[in-house]
Amino acid sequence: MWALLVLFLPHSPQYPHPGTFSRCVRYLAFLWNLLFLLLGLLALAVGVWGLLAKGLPGEERLAPPGSDPMLLFVLVGLGASAVSLAGCLGALRSNPCLLRFFVGAVLAFAGLEVLGGLLLLAAQRRLRDALRDALLLCLLRYQEEPDLRFLVDEVQRNLRCCGLGSYRDWETNPYFNCSAPGAQACSVPASCCLDPWQNGTVTNTQCAFGALRLGDAAAGTVVHLGGCVAQLSAWLRGQAGGIAAGAAVLVLVEAASVLMALKVLRDIVPVRVRD
């Protein structure tokens, strides 16, 4: 399909023929966008694979389709692939329409990123409340959604925490509540355990069984007592420098893409001859 697009996209006239530097920028812009095209396709493939894996026959889907985290990979992959493909073909075939679309799309994404950053700074308290609500939703649907279960287990295991404010928050989960039937009643997930491993390699899924029946002193010898909201907030504050550096790198990448596209566009757009 790409080959057909390349064949049928018309060349734009070039006045005059570009020099060595302009040709280098043109090919660099093509390779630059090709890299991000491949990354976008990879994200798209991961998202589609995740959606298809959950939709296999015999598997019950409990979450509404719009809430699936894999949709984020699909949307990001589609957006990055479309914009990067426009940049690739625009540079390769000297097409000013595609290059203008690419520049406009990148600038629009940059504007949305700046707006999102300002909103995050202006609504930090609401962000903490939203984070708490999201974690509460994860806690309530822990047994129903594999993605949420994986996320919660990773957070609790890496941050050495359990629940939102304390390990007793797991009493709100219908499967871990002490009135629930089954072996998991009055328990917490294995990721809450101080030592969740059996023989150092295999997860001991029963290490936290009956933890909610114990007092805090006895439970503290088996599971982490502290909640994850405070730990996660502290971790995010500690990662502020890395987040800022990542945002700066992203801005530089977008700026480099726009500058290369503008250089190619300037070289291929005909210049009016003065009278």
Rank of each mutant, 00 (worst) to 15 (best):
Y175L: 14
A45M: 14
P13Q: 12
Y27M: 09
L89K: 06
G104Q: 07
T20G: 07
M1V: 11
A80P: 02
A130K: 08
D147R: 05
A45S: 14
L159M: 05
W49Y: 13
C186K: 01
F30E: 02
A234W: 01
G200S: 08
G241H: 13
L42H: 06
G226H: 06
L259W: 10
G116L: 15
A234R: 09
W2Y: 13
V114F: 11
T221I: 04
D129Y: 14
Y142K: 10
Q14E: 10
V48F: 10
T20H: 11
N95V: 14
C207P: 03
V76G: 08
L212G: 10
A91N: 00
R149E: 07
E144M: 12
D129N: 13
L37G: 01
T20R: 14
A211L: 00
D195A: 06
E154V: 03
R93T: 13
A130L: 11
A53L: 06
A208W: 00
R160M: 02
V74I: 10
L7Y: 13
L232W: 03
P64Y: 06
A244I: 09
G182D: 07
C88S: 06
G215V: 03
L4F: 12
L72S: 13
V264G: 02
R266P: 05
D133V: 13
P64M: 12
L250T: 14
L39A: 10
L151G: 04
T172D: 11
C138D: 12
L34T: 08
D275Q: 14
A134Q: 13
G200W: 03
H11L: 05
A256E: 06
V249T: 10
N158W: 04
E145R: 03
S233W: 01
N158F: 04
G182V: 02
L42Q: 06
L112V: 15
L137W: 06
P64L: 13
V249G: 11
V271A: 14
L56A: 14
G241V: 13
R274N: 08
L78R: 06
D267M: 02
V223K: 01
V114Q: 07
G66K: 09
E145P: 01
L89C: 09
K54R: 13
L265R: 05
P13T: 15
D195R: 08
Y175M: 10
P10S: 15
G77Q: 09
A110R: 01
L34W: 03
C178L: 04
L98V: 12
M1A: 13
R274Y: 05
I243M: 14
L148F: 05
L140N: 08
L31K: 05
Y167P: 00
V155M: 09
L236P: 02
C207F: 02
P146R: 09
C186F: 00
V222Q: 07
R141F: 05
V103W: 00
A122D: 12
L52V: 15
A247Q: 09
R128K: 14
G50E: 07
A248M: 14
L236W: 03
R23H: 07
Q239C: 12
